[in-house]
Nucleic acid binder design. Structure first.
Length: 490
RNA sequence: GGCCCUAUCGUCUAACGGUUAGGACGGAGGCUUCUCAAGCCUUAAAUCGGGGUUCGAUUCCCCGUAGGGUCACCA
């Protein structure tokens, strides 16, 4: 490896939302740049004004920022090479176009689109692949800067090149053609602009999907005509749909990356998951922070074959990262999913923290916990439930339920009030110490089921000790009294 | 169709000529247990097919097969 500073870029076109395919490409480019203390550039390729979607540039930046992918140069951070938005660099492309035209490496296309189309049909009828260069005019005039400009392929030959992932690649002459450099609307094509920019921005490693392999000979022709040295090509494997039948695309359910934030995924989990589609450190470790990914990332370990997107594995990664979160950052992430009545600074929130941490895989599950049918609904609402719910299904006797509830009430009432306060996990332990021996002696289910329902009113909930710890002594006793009333009323 | 690329459990993958083909997700079973999760343990499950090269092929070569990509004044 040379001592040259590594520069990578992510170069999306602002034509809609970002999905995980695009983000994965950005991630790999970012990881490689950071690993080498290099530069990562976010370049906006907005040379097709027809397809541009308003707000996309903003959206792209939000998606990358959410994932923790930071760019050194980007839309509002121009570099020594100027703007990172191609539509603001038109003068640069024009200058290179003029140079190529003057050197005889490019020529104005004399045909109308209809005429070119006729040529194409002609070739099809003859069952030959259409190549514009077969119809190249014998002589051409100077380029006036307004016509369509095409590259005059400098050399018709079989191209061989090296790809850092795919190895030695080659393609025949049929892959070469006089492609368009400057469009009639004055904008450069992608094929032209990206090569100029990669060169001017000092990009050393071009990371992109395998859909660009087949156009590489044309890029190489242009590098040759311009006298530029090509960068290192790093072809990334495609991300496949989960059934592996095709590449994951927007039409196949590829979601907006920011959707995942709304669903309560952690950005580090997403980055971890994406890194493992098409890359693997070669060990059995799987859970990595962004920092660790940067340390471990190696181009040599990028795969050739495509990998499928699997949301269940993503969820697992999320759970793993969630477990490693500090209470403080857990609270931050939880904030938007809590009911309005509970703030992350409230006392009740800190009492609920251990339960929430145990229960969820995705943060949006927190809202479900507080739903009227949810496990934590009892926290904010006094329970309302049919009396029969207090009866354990294996021994549905009102008499037993009432007897044990009365006993349990005594045990809870007998505890010093202070033992309910403080750390909820410790409080739950103390409550368990007070109640469990009795339950052990008289049947765990017979004692604990009615107690848990009395406290929570729910079929599914945290265990009775934790529930009592969350509610506090007074409220716990009040709810047991309520349950006893229910039992005797009917 | 031409050209290019790819191929290990259902899925993500390890193996860089020699392993009982390993791990993870998901599945199944179990433990735990007052409920629901979580957690822990166990388990089933793969080298696309056919030829070579080699003492020995998941690994190297060839031919099939299947899948993907690409053939724009889109990127």
């Amino acid at each position: 490896m040379s001592t040259e500073k590594v520069v990578t870029r992510f170069a999306p076109s602002p034509t809609g939302f970002m999905h995980i395919g695009g983000v994965r490409t950005a991630l790999f480019a970012y990881l490689w740049a950071r690993k080498n203390s290099g530069t990562f550039i976010l370049r906006i390729e907005d040379t097709d004004k027809e397809r541009e979607v308003a707000g996309s540039i903003d959206h792209i930046q939000q998606a990358l920022a959410w994932l923790g992918i930071e760019w050194d140069f980007g839309p509002k951070k121009p570099g020594p090479f100027g703007s990172c938005i191609q539509s603001e660099r038109l003068a640069i492309y024009k200058e290179f176009a003029e140079k190529l035209a003057a050197a005889g490496h490019a020529y104005p296309d004399p045909y109308t689109p209809a005429e070119v189309d006729a040529f194409r049909k002609q070739s099809e009828a003859a069952k030959k692949p259409f190549l514009f260069r077969d119809f190249r005019p014998a002589t051409f005039g100077a380029w006036d800067g307004k016509q369509t400009l095409r590259l005059k392929v400098p050399e018709i030959k079989r191209f061989k090149w090296h790809d850092a992932v795919r190895g030695d690649l080659e393609a025949g002459e049929e892959a070469l053609d006089d492609f368009v450099l400057m469009k009639a609307d004055g904008y450069p094509t992608y094929n032209f602009a990206h090569i100029i920019d990669d060169h001017l921005m000092g990009v050393t490693h071009v990371m992109r999907g395998d859909e660009f392999i087949s156009s590489t000979p044309r890029f190489l022709s242009l590098y040759q005509a311009l006298g530029f040295t090509p960068p290192i090509f790093v072809t990334l494997p495609p991300i496949l749909r989960d059934d592996r039948t095709k590449k994951l695309g927007k039409r196949d359910g590829a979601k907006d990356v920011l959707e995942y934030r709304i669903e309560g995924y952690l950005p580090e989990a997403m980055a971890n998951f994406l890194a493992f589609i098409g890359w693997n450190p070669g060990t059995e470790e799987e859970v990595f922070t962004m920092k660790e990914l940067i340390n471990r990332f190696e181009i040599e370990k990028i795969h050739k074959a495509g990998g499928a997107y699997n949301e269940e594995k993503l969820a697992w990664f999320n759970r793993q990262h969630l477990l490693r979160l500090s209470d403080e950052s857990f609270a931050e992430h939880a904030a938007t999913f809590l009911p309005d009545s509970i703030s992350t600074t409230s006392a009740i929130f800190s009492r609920l923290l251990p339960v929430m941490r145990d229960k969820i895989t995705l943060f949006n599950e927190i809202s479900a916990l507080f739903h009227p049918e949810g496990e934590l609904h009892f926290v904010t609402t006094s329970p309302d439930y049919p009396a029969d719910r207090l009866l354990w299904k294996k021994n549905p006797s009102r008499e037993t339920a009432g007897k044990h509830l009365t006993e349990a009430r005594k045990l809870l009432a007998g505890m010093p009030a202070g033992e309910f306060d403080g750390n909820p996990t410790e409080a739950a332990d103390k409550i368990k110490a007070a109640v469990f021996p009795y339950a052990e002696a008289n049947g765990r289910g017979d004692v604990l089921w009615p107690l848990r329902v009395a406290l929570t009113g729910q079929d599914k909930s945290p265990d009775p000790f934790m529930s009592a710890a969350i509610l506090g002594q007074q409220e716990s006793l009040r709810r047991i009294d309520l349950a006893l009333t229910k039992l005797s009323a009917s």
